[in-house]
Amino acid sequence: MRAASPLRLIRKYLSIIATILLFVLAFVAASLKYKGFGTLQVFFNMLIDNSFIIISAVGVTFVIISGNIDLSMGAMIAFTSMLAAALTENLHVNPLLTIAIVIAVGALIGTALGAIITFFKVPPFIATLAGMFMARGLCFLISIEAISINDPFFRAVSLYRIHLFGKAFISINVVIMLVVVLAAIYLAHFTRFGRTVYAIGGNEQSAMLMGLPVNRTKVLVYTLNGICSAVAGITYAFYMLSGYGLNANGFELDIISSVVIGGTPLSGGSGYLVGTVFGVLIQGIIQNVIAFNGTLNSWWTRIIVGLLTLMFIVMQRAFSAIKRKGSTSTFEMKSE
């Protein structure tokens, strides 16, 4: 086996390297500028504050790699955390059973959306938009008011701190997030399912002609996404210890831009889950910098995230244009 040239590896992973580099640079720069920023705990806090977003973004990354889109994650997080709150508080269901029910409901909604998209050819963006409305509506159907969670299990999980490297600590949510990310990496790169997802994103028609189970995989991607949303909702319930219909408002597009900043092009077919993690963390840094600065206003987060998203999209367009040029030139050499 010929060793892959380092230059080619860099090109292959360029967008993910750019994302990680951006994160490291931003973190170093912020550490130099703001006293107390460059600590392990600040980094851990970013993980703690964003673990539910990362979990949801993992599911969406699969959807985007397969060449589709989901706009319902924020609403699904709100709905599933609301459902968890209602089950434990109002109906006094056992917390573990609650978690199982919530995940099952998430899987069910995801599967239903996937089936509508795949079999009835409803544009994904419309179907998941309806899914978003539905999830928000269901929240308010459960309760107009916020439900705070007093269940001892939920409280215990929420407050538990795992100390690492001395004083610094992480929460159980971070552990859940890491497990989800690892499982997702396994699914994406070491199973037939994952390969097929990439293949569909590369060229759905070809994937069908190659004899791959295209329809089944497309539905399963949405099932997986629904499960991720539900797990995100549960971690969100751990994090907030309440459920409320207006929670996680507008997260859909923040999550999508995290995925894009993480190096997954929205045209599908490529992308890495590690990139998605850093894509979310870059948004986390921006928020932290604004908090540390004190004079900067919160709206800068949105503007900077918007600009970063644009930058990454344009970068991806430029890469694919160069790549296309490269491959046609080999064809020309051939035909001469």
Binding site: R192, A199, G202, N203, Q205, S206, L209, G211, L212, G269
Partner: peptide, 19 residues
């Protein structure tokens, strides 16, 4: 009719990989 984004080996093996 192959997937341009996958590697050559993946294109040849996909759907018939040994697990």
């Amino acid at each position: 009719n192959l997937c341009p984004n996958l590697s050559v080996a993946e294109n040849i093996s996909i759907g018939h990989e040994t697990i």
